[in-house]
């Protein structure tokens, strides 16, 4: 069970040192471990999609940052649309209620095999967030070897094109339908039973125009501030 904080343009001032941590972990995992990007002096991994349009989910366990990931609305420039459009021969998802999902990481000390660990909890949090926000589908570029994992959760997976080898690894563009059954499935597989998403301060809705009113007024949740921020 994690505390997964939603960080966006309007509340990011409350998470300054947390975001520093987050981009440092992205550097450690994506630049150093995976070797996807050239090293830099700052030790932070950011790209052209870390803009005001991005929503970062920061996963905390007992006050420490253990996982993170990024969601960008599909009608905004995103990794799949700008860098890997050829992976989506069937067409790019471009709707404001779809999310491009990238840069998921779990800190090395928290990684374990099986669905019961931090990775599973983080995926459950992502699907919870999607249902909260009315996101209809989530996905994007991923290593093809991740596909069986979604089947374990009972997720409905749509591939957007054939896999292609990118830097030695087979990658594919795929989207997952967001639905209550998808949340039940990932929760059943990972043992997560309650809500993990935390919203602190003024938080934007992911879907930026919504003709239908929200079913409940948005509250600003009071949650204990993780030690990492203090």
């Amino acid at each position: 069970m994690l505390d997964v904080h939603v960080v966006c343009a309007t509340n990011r001032h409350l998470y300054e040192s947390a975001l520093d941590d987050y981009f440092r972990w992205r550097y450690r995992c994506y630049t150093l471990e995976k070797g996807w990007f050239p090293p830099n002096e700052l030790g932070l991994e950011t790209d052209q999609f870390d803009t005001d349009d991005a929503f970062h989910l920061l996963g905390y366990h007992e006050g420490s940052l253990v996982a993170g990931t990024r969601l960008v609305p599909c009608h905004r420039p995103n990794l799949l649309s700008e860098v890997f459009p050829t992976l989506a021969s069937r067409g790019l998802p471009g709707a404001r209620h779809q999310a491009d999902w990238t840069r998921m990481f779990v800190v090395p000390a928290s990684r374990r095999r099986g669905h019961q660990g931090v990775a599973g909890a983080m995926v459950a949090a992502v699907m919870e967030y999607c249902l909260d926000e009315g996101i209809s589908a989530i996905g994007g570029v991923q290593e093809t070897y991740w596909l069986p994992r979604w089947a374990d959760f009972g997720w409905d997976v749509e591939v957007l094109g054939l896999p292609q080898t990118i830097a030695g690894t087979s990658c594919v563009a795929a989207m997952f339908r967001c639905a209550p059954e998808a949340l039940e499935g990932v929760r059943a597989a990972t043992g997560i039973e309650g809500t993990q998403i935390r919203r602190r301060g003024p938080v934007l809705r992911f879907v930026d125009t919504d003709p239908a009113p929200a079913s409940q007024p948005r509250r600003i949740d009071q949650h204990p501030v993780p030690e990492a921020f203090l």
């Binding site: 093809t144 596909l147 069986p148 089947a151 997976v157 054939l162 896999p163 292609q164 087979s170 594919v172």
Partner: peptide, 17 residues
């Protein structure tokens, strides 16, 4: 081969289910 790759993954998913 990429087609076989992705098809086998979905076949396996269906078989597991």
């Amino acid at each position: 081969l990429a087609a076989l790759h992705v098809m086998s993954v979905f076949a396996a998913g269906a078989a597991r289910a």
